[in-house]
Amino acid sequence: MSEPEQIGGKLMSLERAVRTFVKRGDQVALGGFTISRNPMALVYEIARQSIGDLHLVAHSNGQALDVLVGAGCVRRIEIAYGGNGRFAPTCVRFRKAVERGAVVVEDYSNYQMALRFLAGALNVPFMPTKSGLHTDLVRLDGFSPELRRVAALPAKKLVVLPDPFDGEEGDVVLLPALKPDVALMHAQQVGDDGTVRIKGLTFADIEQAKAAKAVVVTCEQVVPAADLRRDPDQNALPPFLIDAVVPLPFAAHPTACHLFYDYDPQHLNEYRAAARDDGAYESWLREWVYSVADHDEYLAKVGDERLQRIKADPVRGYAVGLDRR
């Protein structure tokens, strides 16, 4: 690892990054997708700092969403999907919180949420789509008009209009832009100038970062900027959009980080089992979040043997032959 001189004041500890950029009541965009590249270390730190009343915005999120909801940090969610693939078709704490009325949800689809981040990134008020016409995604609001006013949200969930250019195309759905207070993401590499490289699928991380008022990135490695600038089409975000960089190997665990490590099937299975019972879940949070001082202690708890087992094949990007039952 090179001496990260040019990142300057942006290079910081996990504790400081969260304390500085995530405030009670913030609208927070979660990067990653279901069991891949979730900003888990940031999420655990938010829970440790007891930052509450968060308003989450994401397309399909899994583990990060579920831990934040389970730890009681979340008041509202705009989302398309809360699940962990085969490890939890519906995230368990998310499901329980919605059924108990502990969080308020407004539903969109993946494409719709991605377009809303794009609208924010482009600084236009909305983006149109044909997706969702005539469905309850369009007909039913999750948030009341009163909540929209109090929380300074757009006055409407969305608007359906006839295509203003050519009536023959029929109706279109206009989706309001999202401009989250902060985007949390995990990347493989950040250059020592702050350039961000994401390997593999980018999901909507790039649009989320461009739409947000602040961007916090954890990364597997800080590398010389010259290395990343030799192949700039592999880079995802320029330095000037990034507010905090936290170098932290395995910061997406137990979700996967392409080319670095796979998801951790055992951890995800144990999590799901604990999540089903309120008491067991409290114990899980105590054991894995509250009583863990920092990320190093978390990794020590996971153990080298496990981390070796999920280590990715450098070509395939995942742990070949991993026991995933």
Binding site: S60, I79, A80, Y81, G82, G83, P89, T90, C91, F94, R95, V98, E99, V105, D107, Y108, S109, N110, Y111, Q112, S131, G132, T135, L137
Partner: peptide, 10 residues
């Protein structure tokens, strides 16, 4: 409560 649309609606 289930997972939600994901990309199904799209």
């Amino acid at each position: 409560r289930f997972s939600g649309s994901g990309g199904a609606c799209d």
